[in-house]
């Protein structure tokens, strides 16, 4: 599997594409496919720091998260009142400019000496910084529950990508996998409660 390390620029490019798509698109069932691709790219980058079993656990957790999220979104999709068929978010020009700004900021942070204490590969630090930055964009600009969920999952993915270089232990991989699953279960639970009991307070403009 060492040959994977020769093409580490690929998952970084994939992260930029998927992160941008998730920030610009309205959360919908298709977004889960993008999120799944993002998890695959994160696992690829994580393979530089974690043992193969840890990478596999991370990948399986990520795909499981996407399936659960997909089923949760289907609940909303079945509700005709909440279906509007739009692909892209409102305020698209503003979101594109914001995305460009956070991309520049994240690359600058990755190239700075912020992570100098830890022996982190530049590809991983660029990818992780972009994930954290795009998640902040999702959390900051979205009031939609799903967008917040995607933002939180992306944030944890970015942070654990860096943390894998610091503490590559099985216990931490398991705990962070539980965090991913916990986030998606909480969101699915809230969505099911709100779909069943009428409120729709968290809608994206």
């Amino acid at each position: 599997m060492d040959w994977l390390n020769n093409y580490l620029f690929l998952p970084v490019v994939v992260l930029f594409v998927t992160g941008s798509a998730l920030a610009l698109m309205k959360p919908q069932p298709k977004s889960m496919l993008i999120l799944a691709v993002q998890y695959i790219a994160v696992s690829w980058l994580a393979s530089t720091s974690l043992p193969a079993a840890g990478v596999a656990a991370k990948l399986v957790t990520g795909l499981l998260v996407c399936v659960i999220m997909y089923l949760a979104i289907r609940q909303i999709g079945d509700n005709p009142l909440q279906r509007d068929g739009q692909l892209l978010s409102a305020n698209l020009p503003f979101r594109i400019i914001a995305l460009l700004l956070v991309t520049v900021a994240s690359v600058s942070i990755a190239r700075s000496n912020l992570f100098a204490q830890f022996d982190i590969r530049i590809e991983a630090s660029v990818g992780a910084s972009f994930l954290v930055a795009s998640s902040l964009l999702n959390l900051g600009l979205g009031t939609d529950l799903l967008r917040i969920g995607i933002g939180l999952l992306t944030l944890v993915s970015g942070a654990e990508l860096i943390y894998g270089f610091i503490e590559p232990s099985l216990a931490l991989i398991a705990l962070l996998a539980m965090v991913h699953l916990g986030i998606v279960l909480v969101l699915s639970y809230i969505l099911s409660i709100q779909t069943r009991y009428s409120t729709s307070e968290n809608r994206d403009p």
């Binding site: 529950l145 917040i148 939180l152 986030i183 909480v186 809230i190 709100q194 009428s198 307070e201 968290n202």
Partner: peptide, 14 residues
């Protein structure tokens, strides 16, 4: 069923 406060808590704790 309203969840704004709980979601804020979850974000902050993360």
């Amino acid at each position: 069923p309203r969840s704004t406060g709980s979601i804020r808590m979850l974000i902050l704790y993360t």
